[in-house]
Design a protein around this nucleic acid. Structure first.
Length: 403
RNA sequence: GUGGACGUAGUUCAGUUGGUAGAGCACCUGUUUGUGGCACAGGUUGUCGCGGGUUCGAGCCCCGUCGUCCACCCCA
């Protein structure tokens, strides 16, 4: 038997239904906010992710499915969705149009990680990207949209927000932080020492108790924002307050991908183990420029579909469609014209084997059919079918033509 | 990449100091030769993850390998 590769999963039956339910619900809401579908390739030039996600992230430095294709190109399976969407946006020259563009997407992402609960090597994200809107109102709207999606799916969450500043206030802050970190370097954990070089902001996020105790006195970016960033962040918190969306300002919240600035947020669940982030996103005003487009502000997010799957309750399925069966071999082929006609309007299950009455009843119950339609010897002779509504329990025998 | 736990029927799991594999659920059949969900009775189901080793004998012990899970790391 050939097994799926490590960290890759087949979705069948209940899981498959749940997946579709999540995606269709998210799409329904996204459309209401003016998003339209975009599909981008799974395979992209490696350079795309190096330039957007950034070398400092583990995603790029060690988790990509990267290889040389037959044409000698350095390519990668996409580890996340935003880079491809931005690339497509620039490639279609949408950055030269004054219209604001909003896209939603969903599909597989690939990261070569050690699998664990809520962390697969091939996983699926639903995401949205909004281009051309610099206003913090859009950040607020996107957060509102995600909470609406989660509400619709019946998922509880905690929202954490932070501001990562902009090119005006972030670099000087980073410098003072690095200086501070170098002083306490010897007491920080091994990982943090590495982070000072690669991505010092991440040190703030370290889960090591000793590191955290040393960082209590570190200056926070949130207190060192430039005027523009500061007023926007205050606006955002006020908008969320007024909308009744509860959140926590987490000054240690850093997005893992390099392209984020200003608003950063994460939706977290405490019910799914250590991989608790169920959605994450923020503003990335410099990314379009980074990928050779005209400067275009943008905000976006992604939801981890597998991570929310165990949190979502499927709405109860009601009885639907028709179960067709024959109780004598001669009647089996009479079922097909009926099935074809009825399939124009509803779901039809046809049992090809002639079998006993009770078996058919059980079979109909199992596929959750609303109606059982059977042809036995009597019905065959009289050109009728026997019909029972499994909900109201009413039954009747009618001419095939009228049914 | 690091540390730890685990892998037995479709599924959830039991399996004693090594002696040729079991339960619930599910499934099939019957009780009811034409009335589903319930009940009762009977029945089917296994490369014990895979490969090697120790042993008269391995589900159990040893080594390897693949996979799953948990934590770190990372992130959705």
């Amino acid at each position: 038997m050939i097994h799926p590769l490590r960290g890759m999963k087949d979705l069948t039956f209940e899981d498959g239904k749940l997946f579709v339910h999540i995606v269709t619900t998210a799409i329904k809401i996204a459309k209401r906010y003016g998003y339209s579908y975009i599909e981008t390739p799974i395979l992209e030039a490696t350079a795309l992710f190096k330039r957007s996600v950034g070398d400092s992230s583990d995603i790029v430095s060690k988790e990509m499915y990267r290889f040389e294709d037959k044409g000698g190109n350095d390519v990668c399976m996409r580890p996340e969705g935003t880079a491809g969407v931005v690339r497509a946006f620039v490639h279609a020259k949408l950055d030269r149009q004054p219209i604001k563009q909003k896209f939603y997407y969903y599909g597989p992402m690939f990261r070569y990680e050690r699998p664990q609960k809520g962390r697969l090597r091939e996983f699926h994200q639903f995401g949205c990207e909004s281009f051309g809107e610099a206003s913090v109102y859009e950040d607020f709207t996107i957060i509102t949209m995600i909470s609406q999606i989660f509400h619709e799916l019946g998922i509880g969450f905690n929202l954490q927000i932070n501001s990562l500043g902009c090119p005006t206030c972030m670099p000087p802050y980073k410098e003072t932080l690095v200086n501070f970190l170098i002083e306490i370097k010897n007491d920080l954990c091994e990982d943090c020492n590495r982070r000072i070089e690669t991505n010092p902001i991440r040190v703030l996020d370290c889960k090591n108790q000793i590191c955290q105790s040393l960082l209590v006195n570190s200056t926070k970016l949130i207190n060192n924002l430039c005027e523009g960033c500061d007023t926007d962040f205050k606006k955002l918190t006020k908008l969320l307050d007024n909308a009744g969306i509860t959140y926590k300002v987490d000054t240690n919240l850093v997005r893992g991908l390099d392209y984020y600035n200003k608003t950063a947020f994460e939706f977290v669940s405490n019910k799914i183990g250590s991989q608790s982030a169920i959605a994450g996103g923020g503003r990335y005003d410099k990314l379009v420029e980074f990928l050779d487009g005209k400067p275009t502000p943008a905000v976006g997010f992604a939801i981890g579909i597998e991570r929310i799957m165990e949190l979502v309750q499927m709405p109860e399925a009601s009885r639907e469609g028709i179960y067709l069966g024959a109780m004598t071999e001669d009647a089996v082929e009479k079922l097909f014209p009926i099935a074809t006609a009825k399939r124009k309007e509803t779901k039809v299950t046809v049992e090809y084997n002639a079998k006993g009455f009770k078996s058919h009843m059980k079979g109909a119950d199992k596929v959750n059919a609303r109606y059982v339609v059977l042809i036995g010897e009597d019905e065959l002779k009289s050109g009728r079918v026997w019909v029972k509504d499994l909900e109201s329990k009413e039954e009747k025998t009618v001419k095939v033509e009228v049914f």
